[in-house]
Simulated assay, not measured.
Amino acid sequence: MVERFEVALNTPVGRLTTAIDVPTGLIPITAIVPVARRLGEEAAQLEIQHATEAGQAISCRIGCAACCRMLVPLSAPEAFALRDYVEQLPTDRRDLLLNRLGDTKDRIKRAGLWDRLNDVSEASKPIADEELDPINRSYYALRMPCPYLENELCSIYEARPAACRELLVTSPAELCQDLVQNPVTPLPVSMRISSILGLAWGTLTDSPPRLIPLPMALEWAERHEEESRRTWPGSALLDQVLDHMWRFLSQAFQTRSSEL
């Protein structure tokens, strides 16, 4: 059984209205991940429309994977959802991915970053951007392709993290070859879905929001397998997600007002 909810969200670039079906029974946190991603993508479409009307164009194209060398953070719900996705893949596809993840882990270890990333994923309190920045820069300096990348295309496109979905740019594509040194112009994001899911998870479990680096997401999910089995009423999960979305949107309105 499912219950339909009519959702209306005011974003800085327009009003988002949609209908969402949520199971009425007890469900795991992973069941709400597609719902949150869908709302994030609909909000992104409003941003794209706004940029287009202002004479800007999105530079991102299929096969342009320059950003797939960055360190991508996942929330706990996304890590659990990714584990579930990989587990249901055909054996040959799953083994190929796991082998690439193993190679990536070895390279990160040789660079002296694996333990630092693990500390980030298991941090008992939020980590300041100032602490994360040198880790992000060290990882990006490796110019290491995402382990889920195949021939410059995402092999888990339908299950890719929210952070990947949200990174769109309006500056020339060639500038993305060096995202640190070049003046890249990202499309504004009014709702960061990974952060929203992480905050919702933290509220539900009375734990700190997690930033889980993509290369170790499956290992992290395995270590926290028992936590992933917890369930809540579907409406309660949706309420948590929407509550944090409204908070993000409120901040987005304030930020853009101050920029005018």
Rank of each mutant, 00 (worst) to 15 (best):
Gly198Asn: 03
Arg15Leu: 11
Arg61Lys: 11
Ile20Val: 15
Pro28Gly: 05
Arg61Thr: 10
Tyr148Ser: 13
Arg230Lys: 08
Glu222Gly: 06
Leu204Ser: 08
Gln88Asp: 15
Ala162Trp: 09
Leu89Ile: 05
Gln254Tyr: 09
Asp84Arg: 13
Ile32Val: 14
Ser171Phe: 07
Ile212Trp: 06
Pro172Asn: 10
Val13Ile: 09
Asp133Tyr: 12
Glu219Phe: 05
Arg15Ile: 07
Asp106Val: 07
Gly25Glu: 15
Ser124Cys: 08
Met144Ser: 04
Arg116Lys: 15
Leu260Asp: 12
Ser195Leu: 11
Gln177Tyr: 12
Pro28Glu: 12
Thr52Asn: 13
Val169Asp: 10
Asn136Leu: 11
Leu71Val: 02
Ser75Cys: 08
Thr205Tyr: 09
Thr18Gly: 09
Met1Ala: 12
Leu96His: 10
Ile193Pro: 00
Pro12Lys: 11
Arg143Ala: 13
Val72Gln: 00
Phe80Ser: 01
Arg107Ala: 03
Glu41Gln: 13
Pro23Tyr: 12
Gly63Cys: 10
Arg15His: 10
Arg165Cys: 07
Ile212Thr: 04
Leu117Trp: 01
Ile135Ser: 01
Arg165Thr: 09
Arg38Gly: 11
Leu167Pro: 08
Ser194Val: 02
Leu98Tyr: 02
Val72Trp: 01
Ala51Glu: 15
Ser207Asn: 09
Pro134Ser: 14
Cys60Ile: 10
Lys109Met: 13
Ala31Leu: 11
His244Gln: 15
Pro145Ser: 07
Thr205Ile: 06
Leu238Trp: 02
Cys64Arg: 11
Pro215Cys: 14
Ile193Met: 11
Thr24Phe: 07
Tyr139Thr: 01
Glu42His: 08
Leu214His: 10
Ala44Tyr: 03
Arg61Trp: 10
Gly234Asn: 10
Arg110Trp: 08
Ser171Pro: 09
Pro147Gly: 01
Gln251Asn: 13
Val184Met: 07
Arg38Val: 10
Met216Arg: 04
Met70Arg: 01
Ala217Lys: 00
Gly55His: 06
Val184Tyr: 04
Trp246Asn: 13
Val189Pro: 00
Ala141Arg: 08
Asp239His: 13
Ile32Asn: 05
Leu142Ala: 02
Ser124Ile: 09
Arg94Val: 06
Glu150Trp: 13
Leu237Gly: 03
Leu237Phe: 04
Lys105Ala: 13
Ala31Glu: 11
Ser155Thr: 12
Thr11Pro: 06
Leu211Asp: 00
Cys176Pro: 00
Ala162Arg: 02
Ser138Cys: 03
Glu166Ser: 14
Thr185Ser: 12
Gln251Tyr: 12
Ala217Met: 05
Asn99Phe: 11
Glu53Pro: 06
Asn182Thr: 05
Leu113Gly: 01
Glu259Leu: 14
Leu71Glu: 00
Thr91Lys: 08
Arg210Gln: 15
Ala43Lys: 02
Ala200Met: 15
Leu98Asp: 04
Leu101Ser: 04
Ala79Phe: 01
Ser235Ala: 14
Glu78Ile: 09
Ala163Asp: 09
Leu26Cys: 07
Asp239Arg: 14
Leu260His: 07
Leu218Met: 03
Ala36Cys: 07
Gly112Asn: 06
Gln45Asp: 15
Asn99Pro: 00
Cys64Gln: 15
Leu101Val: 03
Val86Gly: 05
Gly25His: 07
Glu174Ala: 13
Val72Leu: 02
Gly234Val: 04
Ala163Glu: 12
Ala128Ser: 14
Pro28Trp: 11
Ile156Gln: 01
Asp103Thr: 10
Ala57Gly: 06
Pro77Thr: 02
Leu175Gln: 11
Leu117Ser: 01
Thr52Tyr: 14
Ala43Trp: 04
Ile193His: 02
Pro213Ser: 01
